[in-house]
Amino acid sequence: MSAFTDGKTARAGVRGGSAWIPTVILILGALYCLLPLYWLVAAASKLPGELFTLPSFLPGFSGGLWENIASLTNYRSGRYWLWTWNSLIYAGGGAALSTMVSAMAGYGLAKYNFAGRGLVFGFLLGAVLIPGVVLAVPQYLLMSKLGLASTYWSVLIPSIVSPLGIYLCRVYAAAVIPDELLEAGRIDGASEVRIFFSIGLAPMIPGLITVFLLQFVGIWNNFLLPFIMLADERLFPLTVGLYTMVNQGTEQPGVYTLIITGALVSILPLIALFLLLQRYWRLDLISGSVKG
């Protein structure tokens, strides 16, 4: 059952009309979440001169949105789109590597009983408790020592280990991979690595997609790590790029509409990703109610 399976169909057949009070509560919640975003859309559709003069919740009708996107594209010869591309590299590459490492570790922890297993698992769980901010500075210094600071790797490498991802993979692997299948593989004489790739991995895929998405969002939204690691604006992801735009201003008039449009455009890829992949969100993993 996916996280987004519709409640109505699953619980159909209960007597009575529509449940209005819960509906109203949910609509209010939805409005609270969407209104600020609607304001962002309305503001992004205004020309720089209209931003502070038109009523806030009315969109501009003078083609402001296209003009703003054009200025965004022109901003330092397309730097904004370079940042978007970087964000995709960090989030996509980081999440892919992270999912792979988590899948292997989760599988190893779930399917083998070995000396040091408890220690490894305890260490990884303990790591959840150390705030990322505490680690970011010494991580930066170590990267500097290795000559990796201000490279793609300086952001990618620290994003790979995800204690939560490993935990989820362990839970999921334990639930969905039958030991009998692995034993059958062993009888056939397959190597352990081969068994993992040919037998273990396939049933884990729905869980891995969730881990991938969680990591993707986490890295996409991360600000502090790239902010500290990167000294070259051509390597910035969107969050850091937009932040510097706010702090440095630009030579173009209407910097506020530019920032607002930039903010709006920057959140569209993630929303699209959510809507496209919502079937694959298996957040039941997190609450521990996994059923194969």
Binding site: G7, V14, W20, L26, C33, V217, T239
Partner: peptide, 21 residues
């Protein structure tokens, strides 16, 4: 709750801010 209206819309709408850094 059974028979709640606009559940799918509300669920997605309330989840959307998670996508905003």
């Amino acid at each position: 709750v059974p028979r709640v209206r606009f559940a799918r819309f509300s669920r997605i709408a309330i989840f959307v801010p998670y996508a905003v850094p």
